[in-house]
Simulated assay, not measured.
Amino acid sequence: MLVPGGEFWMGAAEDEPDSQDSERPRHLVQMSRFLMGRYPVTQAQWKAVTGLEKEEIDLNPDPSRFKGDHRPVEQVSWFEAVEFCQRLSAQTSREYGLPSEAEWEYACRAGAETPYHFGEKITTEIVNYYDNDSKREYRGETTPVNYFGVANALGLCDMHGNVDEWCQDHWHENYKEAPTHGIAWLTSNQNTIRILRGGSWYTEPRACRSAARYNSSPDNRSYNFGFRVVCRAPGTLP
């Protein structure tokens, strides 16, 4: 899906419920346009790309705990997600990669400044996440992409819940001195911990907010870790 250029306020306001200091200071970011996968990468897509020629590391064609061609792939490390993007780039001659943290939040919000792109509150009727309210359904596993048929204003689905999504950036404790042009915030140490966004079937509502951010070692795999890809938009697109 085409994500047009623009600007947005990245991070959480001081009064946003369940927000963390790591999500501040809220800051204005200028964004260039890009393309983003409508859904997290599915297991069928993963299997197809793992059959392509290796770039740097081997990939397990079937790593997921919760099986299903239309479910998001999980138990994929950051390094493996990058290898997937490298193989896809080599096959298509287009520049695929993981989104920067700013690209992810900008795309997730789709112009909204509320905690979720659809409003202030979350419900298990439209998002797959953990809720300790016994009156609400807890699925305990991933669901097929677009299971709820809910997209944001850009047509992107599953931006909240289902699987946490890897981003390019290295982890920083807060947004002091963060880039303001949408690029990934990187340091010289390529093995430093990386960013995860969006929350998952395993996490509570606060972790599914548009501004919520978490981290993990880039070699870590978990049954709630997945990813989606971005592609730099060619200049001929409107």
Rank of each mutant, 00 (worst) to 15 (best):
E177Y: 09
V229T: 15
V230G: 06
K176A: 12
R194Q: 03
A178V: 06
N191M: 13
N174K: 04
N146H: 13
I183L: 02
C108I: 04
I126G: 04
E165K: 06
N174H: 05
D169V: 05
A151M: 03
D158Y: 05
S217T: 11
P179G: 02
F118P: 01
Y129D: 02
N128V: 08
S188V: 10
R136K: 15
C208A: 11
V145A: 10
G198C: 10
V229Q: 12
G155Q: 10
L196F: 03
H117F: 15
P234D: 14
T142N: 01
R139P: 00
N162A: 01
A178D: 06
E120M: 07
N132F: 09
S216Y: 12
D164S: 11
G161Y: 03
P144F: 08
G198T: 12
A178L: 10
C208H: 01
Y202S: 04
I126K: 14
G111R: 11
E165D: 03
T124G: 08
T142P: 01
P179Y: 06
H172Y: 15
T180K: 12
H172G: 05
D131S: 15
D169Y: 05
Y202R: 11
Y175R: 00
D133P: 05
R209L: 08
S216V: 00
D219C: 05
W166F: 07
E137C: 01
A107V: 03
N220L: 15
R213V: 05
S134R: 12
T123G: 14
A107M: 04
E141K: 12
S216D: 14
A151S: 14
S200K: 00
K121A: 13
A207C: 13
G226R: 04
Y214F: 13
R228T: 07
G235I: 10
T124Q: 11
W166D: 01
E120I: 08
Y130W: 09
K121T: 14
A151Q: 12
N132R: 09
N191Y: 14
D164G: 04
L154C: 07
F118C: 00
Q190I: 13
R228W: 10
Y138C: 10
S222I: 00
T143M: 14
V230A: 02
